[in-house]
Simulated scan of single mutants.
Amino acid sequence: MARWQPDAPGRLAAAALDLFEEHGYENTTVIEIAEHAGLTKSTFFRYFPDKREVLFGGGTVTGLLVEGIASAPSTAGPLDVVADALDTLGRTFFTADRREFSRRRQAVLNATTELREREALKRIDLTASMIEALDRRGVPSLTARVAAQLGALVWEIAYDQWIDTGSPDNTDDFGTLARRALADVRATGALR
């Protein structure tokens, strides 16, 4: 691949995923990732601080959720605000053309303790960002915390269903799966 081709971060992520699947995360170097993408090591480090971060989207998901929360209708309740943000995420990031990459990425994460730990930390950060975004909307602190925690649970359920190639719901888009998961969470909350 020529060095001048666009989307260096995407090319690096695809190259990393290929190499992590082929050789394992621990056995793959930044130099190998850059070379596989047709780029240099310095280009890699322009976009990612280390090889671990190449699979985590550089905060894109968090930014989209925060943006979705901020742009939700002012009359929406906290869980509906989170649902709107998840819809935004589904329309702009978890699109049909990213499903296979996401499925492969999750398999690599599941096979590597260090990456699973990083994913857990990213999810904690994502929840904290949702809490802050809800706070900025004037949602009371405890309510914001509960809505964000439930939103993170809904996101996880929907994401797992979305990437599951054996799931009967695999043809549904991420937003539909998130709305369904939110309805299930709300129904569970109504149990006595």
Rank of each mutant, 00 (worst) to 15 (best):
T28E: 05
G166M: 04
G189S: 08
V154T: 13
G63N: 12
R105D: 01
A15L: 10
R104L: 14
D84Y: 04
L17G: 13
A85R: 02
R52S: 14
G58H: 01
T113C: 01
P49N: 06
G189H: 03
Q106S: 12
L182S: 13
K122A: 15
L142M: 04
F101P: 01
D184T: 07
K51P: 07
E26Y: 05
A148R: 00
A76F: 15
Q149T: 13
G68N: 07
A2M: 09
L64I: 10
D160T: 07
S71G: 04
L115F: 07
D97W: 04
I131P: 00
Q106M: 15
R46S: 08
G57A: 06
D7S: 08
L55V: 09
D172P: 00
S42C: 05
L39T: 09
G151W: 00
A181D: 10
N27P: 03
L79G: 01
S129K: 02
G77V: 09
A70V: 01
G10F: 05
L182H: 07
S42I: 12
E117D: 14
A158Q: 14
W4D: 10
D164N: 15
L12K: 10
F94G: 03
A120T: 03
R116H: 05
A34M: 11
G151K: 00
L115E: 05
L12C: 10
P168A: 08
G59C: 09
I157D: 12
A107F: 07
V146S: 07
S42V: 13
A34S: 12
A187H: 12
V154R: 01
A183L: 10
A15T: 05
T176A: 14
T60Q: 09
Y25T: 08
F48K: 05
A16I: 08
L89F: 04
E21F: 10
A181W: 10
E32H: 06
L19A: 09
S141C: 00
I33P: 10
G59W: 06
L191M: 13
G24Y: 10
V82I: 15
V30R: 02
D173Y: 07
S74G: 07
G58Y: 00
P78H: 08
E26Q: 12
A2K: 11
S141N: 02
D173T: 08
K51H: 06
L191P: 00
M130H: 01
